[in-house]
């Protein structure tokens, strides 16, 4: 308590720094957001700050750009696609990781430490390193010495490919974080369930899962934002050539990279639309999200 009673924080310099950093951080979005409401010709004719300065901007603002980008671009379809990629890509790794984390926390079995080390160790593999062989795996399967281990499945271009890819890339961190969380649960509760004769399966669903909901929500927010905002994996596994396969980010990239030449009114409004969902999720689940980030990082 004494800490917050100090006089020091009243020094204007520290407030000045805070406010100036905050303003700097808000500034890039400001002009962009403003421009998204201006007609395309105006954006190119008068810079937005000149328009603000001379006051002409206020009569220009309208939602027309948003209507146009929605109508012309089928952005809503990309939204549904993004959700169809993101939601399973969040739930699948969490489920698998939760089971594994339970085993690593509460069960005794041979090779437990080695396996856990493997999980943690695989966090160092950057996603790019597995990207291209994974594309080939989804197409041709795996053959070792002529014996097919995984048959040729021809999965690329379907949602399943992105689900599996994101599962692979997200699992190590998910397992690690959830194990961390479950280790913090009171062991006595789980042991008493054991004495009552409940199987691990029941204990997991009835006891551990409800207790871990905070940890799961934290990772879920994290994974949701990461998958939703991902561009590389969607680009590689779904492709961009079929318009029905576009997700929001790949759609946005097409809008940003000069598909319309100089159509800044569509670029700005399109980009603003695309960040609405993650911003909503972010502000809605901010508490969980931050806790998840901190859980892994702050110790002691």
């Amino acid at each position: 308590m004494t800490r917050s009673n100090q006089k020091w924080y009243d020094k204007p310099i520290s407030k000045l720094i805070i406010v100036s950093i905050t303003l700097t951080w808000m500034f890039p979005i400001f002009g962009f957001l403003l421009s998204s409401f201006r007609p395309g010709e105006s954006i190119k004719r008068t810079s937005w700050w000149d328009a603000v300065y001379t006051g002409t901007i206020w009569s220009e603002l309208s939602f027309n750009n948003y209507q146009e980008v929605f109508r012309a671009e089928n952005l809503d379809r990309s939204f549904y696609n993004s959700l169809a990629v993101t939601i399973p890509s969040t739930i699948i790794p969490i489920t698998i990781a939760a089971f594994a984390a339970y085993a690593f926390s509460f069960m005794e079995f041979k090779g437990k430490n080695v396996l856990f080390l493997f999980v943690v160790g695989s966090m160092i593999i950057p996603l790019q390193m597995s990207l291209i062989p994974l594309v080939q795996l989804f197409k041709d399967g795996i053959e070792i010495a002529g014996i097919p281990i995984i048959p040729a499945l021809d999965l690329n271009g379907t949602f399943v490919a992105t689900w599996f890819a994101h599962t692979g890339f997200g699992l190590p961190l998910a397992t690690f974080l959830l194990r961390d969380f479950m280790m913090g649960l009171p062991k006595s509760v789980i042991e008493s369930a054991k004495i009552d004769g409940a199987s691990h399966f029941t204990t997991f669903f009835k006891l551990v899962l409800p207790l871990s909901i905070a940890g799961i929500a934290a990772f879920a927010t994290f994974q949701f934002l990461w998958v939703y905002n991902d561009f590389l994996v969607a680009n590689v596994f779904l492709g961009i050539y079929k318009p029905e396969n576009l997700v929001v980010t790949s759609h946005m990239s097409q809008i940003v990279v000069g598909r319309f030449g100089e159509a800044w009114h569509l670029r700005t409004s399109g980009a603003i639309i695309s960040i609405l969902v993650p911003l909503g999720v972010f502000f809605g689940l901010q508490r969980f999200f931050i806790r998840g980030l901190i859980g892994g990082a702050v110790k002691g």
């Binding site: 594309v135 080939q136 197409k139 021809d154 271009g157 596994f237 492709g239 050539y241």
Partner: peptide, 12 residues
């Protein structure tokens, strides 16, 4: 994209 599609078998 066409390179990736040829590798992935998901060609048009």
């Amino acid at each position: 994209e066409i390179q990736i599609q040829m590798e992935s078998g998901d060609t048009p």
